[in-house]
């Protein structure tokens, strides 16, 4: 099995949780009430913690690769130069020194926070997927990925609970909250198709028995989403067209802004520490 496949697959998993965590972190200090502000920050930190475990593993793989194999891993010149100069790569290098076209996160997680309903809708769609993904990933032949999945699963169970309860609360609330929740579900639904469309990395990882066949998760996903949407007395959202691209490095305009803010300090002051 090629370690490049494991590396790229691990990075894709990491990018999803890093960008999602970064998005939610923007609520810190701005939540509608203090308690929910803390709840979102907790979830954000869970996700960034998962990203750290995955990036650490990815860095380890890179550092153990023969020089010839890693001569052209990334488009970002800053990071590739560092690798070519035989520097030891860290989790931070992977988070801060790659450019948008190196990121393989799905489009869903990079979408804007919008209002509370939009934030809830995005988490609702993403967390449900993460749960099914990690549950399956526990059986990965790669023992590190399996262990990270097992540890993360407990965290995601709470994330699901948080998001689902807000969907129900708002859907079952006032006429205005119902309308806003419905609108947000409808607006974000078109980004869910991509979660189940296997890209080349996922195909290769699945064939190597380290990755999950995400296309097989779609039916369970649909059913679980529908159950909550019904309980919230909302309408199941529809989409004539599903957006794709993020998993192949083709992102919406939002990712550039996220990275600009997230990476600014390390780019301006390399190796800066607290």
């Amino acid at each position: 099995m090629s370690s490049i496949t494991t590396l790229k697959y691990t990075l894709q998993l990491a990018d999803n949780v890093l960008i999602m965590g970064q998005r939610l972190a923007a609520w810190c200090g701005k939540g509608p009430v203090l308690e929910q502000d803390i709840a979102l920050t907790n979830i954000s930190l869970d996700q960034i913690g998962q990203a750290r475990s995955l990036y650490q593993y990815a860095a380890l793989i890179i550092n153990n690769m023969p020089a010839a194999d890693k001569a052209h891993l990334f488009n970002a010149p800053l990071l590739q130069e560092k690798i070519n100069n035989q520097h030891t790569i860290t989790e931070d290098d992977l988070a801060y020194l790659r450019d948008a076209w190196d990121f393989r996160n799905c489009l869903l997680v990079e979408q804007e926070n919008g209002d509370w309903a939009y934030t809830v809708a995005r988490s609702f769609f993403f967390d449900r997927f993460q749960y099914l993904l990690y549950a399956a990933l526990q059986k990965s032949m790669d023992s590190t990925l399996a262990a990270i999945a097992e540890k993360s699963l407990k965290e995601v169970q709470y994330h699901i609970k948080w998001a689902s309860e807000w969907v129900i609360r708002l859907g079952d609330g006032t006429a205005i909250s119902k309308e806003k929740m419905q609108q947000a579900l409808q607006a974000r639904w078109e980004y869910t198709g991509e979660l189940f469309a296997m890209n080349a990395i996922e195909q290769a990882a699945m064939q190597a028995n380290i990755g999950v066949d995400v296309s097989s998760l779609q039916q369970a996903y649909q059913q679980q989403i529908e159950a909550i949407v019904n309980e919230a007395s909302l309408q199941m959202p529809t989409a004539a067209w599903m957006q794709t691209g993020g998993k192949n490095g083709v992102h919406t305009e939002h990712l550039g802004y996220i990275l600009a803010e997230m990476q600014y300090l390390q780019r301006a002051y390399p190796n800066m520490e607290w």
Binding site: V33, E35, I38, A39, N42, K161, W162, E165
Partner: peptide, 15 residues
């Protein structure tokens, strides 16, 4: 803490 109902209060307390 503040919460809309008991369920939310328990979850907020957890957080």
């Amino acid at each position: 803490l503040h919460a809309a109902d008991a369920q939310m209060a328990i979850e907020n307390a957890r957080d």
